[in-house]
Design a protein around this nucleic acid. Structure first.
Lengths: 227, 227
DNA sequence: TTTTTGCTTAACAATTTGATAATCTTTAAA
DNA sequence: TTTAAAGATTATCAAATTGTTAAGCAAAAA
């Protein structure tokens, strides 16, 4: 199976820091995305759905805390890891940062090694295993064998269809944003048109002949069995 | 429903530190267990199965790192949170600590407030059921599923409406200025007219059929349940 | 080579959403 | 009590979003 690289977004207005961190994280095998200010950070975060966001607190435009606040309000970023970087080694601002919803707080000057081990520690915690067979009502999804069984009958889905269904069914009820879906199934490099997801969804609905994928207009799709 | 207190084990050979940390964590609602050295820490950990272990690195008998290593080998402590305390603010030992399997690393002298917010941040992140559900009286806002439930009935809100309600309900009582709302939901680039917010507020009020959004004239809006 | 299968896109229909304008109400100040 | 400002309400319309179908490619299979 293909291993998905963990994505890290770094936002800092100092190019040097951006480069040092980028270099180190890339070398460690992470996929790095950068942003030069708060607004750019928000844009890129929405676009790429990173697993971790490293935010400089002081940036032109929106500062790190503001960015964090804005992102945390959105369901898609509820679980994204966030680390603050700051030149202030001020106790109260550190507390404020952590209460804003950050997962860690690093004071400049930053040692790349320390940063790396912190990032690794966070991800070590975060990685979770998932079972390969999903049972949802009378629908069975075997992610290992790539087989769907509904009421004893086997249904054949094409790869993309299968991956899409598998993604949605992995968290029943959760709304997956179009961006999330694109990132999970197509990755950030491949760019496909607007209607691609819809068409696949339609095919799944058709083949399953089961009302289990709900559209949330303006947001995305979710899987839900209606028993 | 009774809430199960989170258990924290603290191991340090200095009684003062033990007491200060105990006091602060207890005050915050945690159930505290203490140990004076490494061996005692292992015993108590096995007995009480704490959710978090705070280990002084330098202790008589087994030191913190050794304790961590021993515990991490056992399946029961694979997922237990561990924080190291140390007098050394030495980079390499911090890295070593994190690589040993610790989740955080604090340097003495310790500020109780910082410790507290770190502990809170860790639990917030890794507590088993990270629910994205806001429960406000008999109103339920599920930010992940994008649904509103009021007295068992599901209410459908459009995206902007949902985001707006979600924003206000995220901090009940807080008055959000019109500007804050615009920035959070529309961003800085998009510019919309004066009446747009009002109209959305109105729609929410209408759909919820519940008096929970208060107008603060000349200032903004706030969410408040009137029980 | 030909056929089949899967993926993407184009084109258009159907639907929903969100912003605005216009008008009414309320509120607070004069 | 009057008046002006802020907000509430309503209807309307344009824009955004999604559903659906058909068609074109490219890769794999026959």
């Amino acid at each position: 199976m293909e291993i998905k690289k963990l994505k890290v977004l770094i936002a800092d207005d100092e190019p040097d820091i951006l480069e040092i961190i980028s270099y180190n994280l890339s070398a460690e095998g992470y996929l790095v995305i950068t942003a030069k200010n708060g607004d750019e950070a928000i844009d890129r975060a929405k676009k790429h759905q990173p697993d971790l966001i490293i935010l400089d607190v002081m940036m032109p435009g929106k500062n790190g805390m503001e960015v964090c606040n804005i992102l945390r309000l959105q369901p898609a970023f509820k679980n994204t890891l966030i680390i603050f970087l700051t030149a202030l080694s001020d106790e109260s601002s550190e507390i404020k940062g952590l209460e804003t919803g950050a997962d860690d707080y690093l004071t400049k000057p930053i040692s790349p090694k320390v940063l790396l081990s912190k990032v690794n520690a966070l991800f070590r915690r975060f990685s979770k295993e998932e079972s390969s067979v999903l049972q949802l009502g009378d629908l069975q999804i075997d992610r290992e064998k790539y087989i769907i069984v509904h009421k004893g009958e086997e249904i054949t889905l094409a790869r993309k269809e299968f991956e899409l269904l598998s993604l949605l069914a992995g968290k029943p009820g959760k709304v997956f944003l179009r961006n999330e879906i694109l990132n999970s199934i197509w990755g950030t490099e491949v760019i496909v048109g607007d209607r691609t997801i819809d068409v696949h969804i339609r095919k799944i609905r058709q083949k399953l002949n089961l009302d289990c994928i709900t559209t949330v207009k303006g947001v995305g799709y979710k899987f839900e069995m209606n028993d």
